[in-house]
Amino acid sequence: MSDHDKIYSTKFQDKIERNTLLMFVLTAIAVAVGGIVEIVPLFYLPNTGMNGGDGTFNGTSHKDLQGNAIPMDKIVWNPTTSAHKTLADWQPGDGVRPYTALETAGRQVYIREGCFLCHSQMIRPFRDEKDRYGHYSIAEESMYDHTYQWGSKRTGPDIARLGGKYSDEWHRKHLKYPRDVVPESVMPNFFFLDKAMVDKTKTIKTLEVMTKMPFNPVPKTIYTPDYIAGAAAELEGKTEMDAVIAYLQSLGNHVKFEEGVNYRD
C-alpha cells in the first residue's frame, strides 16, 4: 500500500473517496440544497407575483398607510372586478395586464435583437433611480413576463417605465437611427424593423402558449378565444417597428402607485 492510500482526513471522507457512487450521491445532494432554499419559496410566498394558476391571485401583503392590505386587484388588473373589462378598454393605472397581440409581437423582436443586454427593466429603490426612471419596480409588474427581461447591465438607460415618456414618432426616429436623435448614443441602427412585417402566425401562437404556462399563465378571461381570434386583424399591416414601439409604450404605467405606501415588505 502506498502512502497515498493511508492519507485521509476522516474515515468517512476516506470512504467517500473510495466509492464512486457514494461520492456521486453526496455531491448531488450537496449542490441541490442552496437552489431549493432560494427558489422554491418564491413560488408560494406573497409579493412574488404568483397568480395561483387560474387568476385566483395568491395575494399581496402590500399595506396602505392605514395598515390595511391593498386588494390584489388594485395592483393586478382583474377584468371581473375592474370597470374596464377587455384588453382594448384597459387604461393605465388599472393594474398589471398581459401584453396585447401587437405588444407581444414587439416583445418577441425585443428579445430577438438582444435589447436586454444593454437595457434593464428593473428599477431599484434608490433616490437617483426614482428621479431618473420612476417608482421602483415590483414583482407583480413582470408576472406575465415569460422569459423575464430585467437585464443585468445598463449600457443604455433602464426602460422599465418607458411607456408614455416619448412620442411614437420619437421612438420611430430613435430606433431607426439613434444617433440622429441622441448623438452620443452607441445603440445600433434598427431601421430594418421598419421594413419587416410582424409574424402573425407566431404571435397568435404565442398568445395561446401564454395561456398554457404552468406558472403565471395569462388567464383565459383575458386572452379569450374572441381576443385571440381577433388578433390577426390587430396585427394586419403592422411592421416590426410598429410592434416594438407598441411594446415600449406599454412598459411601466400599469400600476397606480400611491404616495407613501411601502410596496417592498
Binding site: I39, A139, S142, H146, K202, K212, N216
Partner: peptide, 25 residues
C-alpha cells in the same frame, strides 16, 4: 424549461421573479 412557439422561438415556463431567480441560479 420552456414552451416552444415554433422552431425558432420559445418562452420560459417561469416569469418575473421566479424566472429571474432561476436564471441567476
Amino acid at each position: 424549461l420552456a414552451i416552444p412557439v415554433d422552431w425558432a422561438t420559445s418562452y420560459s415556463i417561469y416569469s418575473g421573479v421566479q424566472d429571474a431567480m432561476i436564471q441567476w441560479w
